[in-house]
């Protein structure tokens, strides 16, 4: 009689891309493998080049707790923020993770955005956004898929967009899907 209801934390799959240098001029530590969220494995020390035979993981740079960065971050390295960032984060084809101690006052643009800390700013994820139970987000969220853990606090707007189609094979995209992120039907994917 009424409309039928229908109802994914992004697992991360390392992309076969060359390891890139840290994205900011301030000291950014490579993240220890044990603390990299999900399945992303960091290179403890960035190798100069990546051979075809070796399994390759995208480098994850880390802004440790105690570090504070003002300005714009851009590049093609995954980023883990456990410190403070003020400004703008534009890492279009990467994953940005804000750890439990992370405090970000910046707009974030990335492929995947995972929040466990505090963020004040607008989030734009071309693939997915996930808010952990300890996340505190104030700002709008623009993403094809969103995952929200119980306990997350979001003050702002959630809007869905069509998933970017230019990048990656369907198999890769399928591999990144997980249970708690819901694919958004095309009918729902329309911006302002």
């Amino acid at each position: 009689m009424w409309r039928k209801p229908s109802e994914g934390k992004p697992s991360s799959e390392p992309d076969n891309l060359p390891v890139s240098a840290p994205i900011a001029s301030q000291p950014i530590d490579p993240i220890p493998a044990s603390r990299v969220p999900s399945q992303v494995q960091a290179a403890p020390s960035a190798p100069a080049a990546v051979t075809a035979a070796a399994p390759v993981a995208r480098a994850t740079s880390k802004i440790s707790s105690g570090l504070k960065i003002n300005g714009e971050l851009s590049g093609d390295s995954d980023l883990y923020i456990d410190g403070e960032v003020h400004g703008k984060i534009r890492l279009g084809n990467t994953r940005v993770t804000v750890g439990p101690n992370g405090r970000v006052q910046a707009d974030i643009e990335a492929r995947e955005i995972m929040i466990d800390g505090n963020v004040e700013g607008n989030l734009k994820a071309s693939e997915s956004a996930h808010f952990g139970a300890s996340s505190r987000v104030s700002g709008s969220v623009l993403t094809p898929r969103i995952g929200i853990d119980d306990g997350a606090r979001l003050r702002g707007k959630v809007e869905t967009t069509p998933k970017a189609t230019a990048r990656g094979s369907s198999a890769t995209a399928k591999g990144r899907e997980s249970a708690d992120l819901q694919p958004v039907p095309a009918s729902a994917a329309e911006g302002e």
Binding site: D150, L154, K157, V158
Partner: peptide, 22 residues
């Protein structure tokens, strides 16, 4: 109310845009 996956998914799947403010 607080943000919930089920509530957001419910409305987003129906094509709505959802804002939350606890």
């Amino acid at each position: 109310g607080p943000v919930w996956q089920s509530t957001v998914s419910f409305f987003v799947d129906k094509g709505y845009r959802v804002s939350t403010e606890d």
